[in-house]
Amino acid sequence: MQVIATRPKSLTDVGFTYCPGCLHGVAHRLIAEAMDELGMRNQTMGIAPVGCSVFAYKFFNCDMAEAAHGRAPAVATGMKRARPDMHVFTYQGDGDLAAIGTAEIVHAANRGEHFSVFFVNNAIYGMTGGQMAPTTLPAMKTSTSPYGRDVDDIGYPIAVCEMLNSLKAPYFIERVSLLSPQDILKARKAVMKAMRYNKEERGFTFVELISTCPTNWGLDPLKSCEWARENMLPYFPIGNFRDKGAEGGDK
């Protein structure tokens, strides 16, 4: 028998708890593949957020911690400072990172903490059943913006990469998408780069992954990807914002 594909070593054999069509699984896989390829698994600790990916601590096959809602970057700071010889990453949703955890992410980035942050942006709170997120698009309806997000009342969606890019310390900031196989291949490269820099102790690395929520958007998985491409990508353009390791350094 010929093996075509296997589960990365850096994922456990626990089945994902995600809804059909959810892209958290893809994001998990990209990070796990990077850990495998870079041979970092035994020196890596991860942090799961509070959100749909709350059970990520069961899925990544390295030491994992579960943080309070939004506090992953603070927990990561503690972990990295306590075990500087190990590599640390956090995995966070948009509510976790850009609402309740805004202070933690901004200050971890500003300190240039030596860890990677993988930020999954699906413009909604998935876990709690479809409430407005800080990244919910203008006029988008959610259960707590039933008349559509009114930007005059509650502000515009926060573009996190752009915001963090105003800080001096971060080493690598890139936004990618999980909306098509081609995009996923590009995302893979960015995740790999962030983790390589992480391994090389270069500094704070941040990857935002544009994702979907078929369940709470009320769309099937394919339509969700189309919707996100049409509506999210114009607001959250994909691309690299900062790569201090590249030719030319700072962008």
């Binding site: 509510g95 609402a99 309740i100 709170y125 876990m127 709690t128 059943g129 409430q131 259960s143 707590t144 913006s145 039933p146």
Partner: peptide, 14 residues
Amino acid sequence: YPITPQSELIEYMA
């Protein structure tokens, strides 16, 4: 701020 099992309250207020 949303949280289960309270979210219907905030959704009703919204």
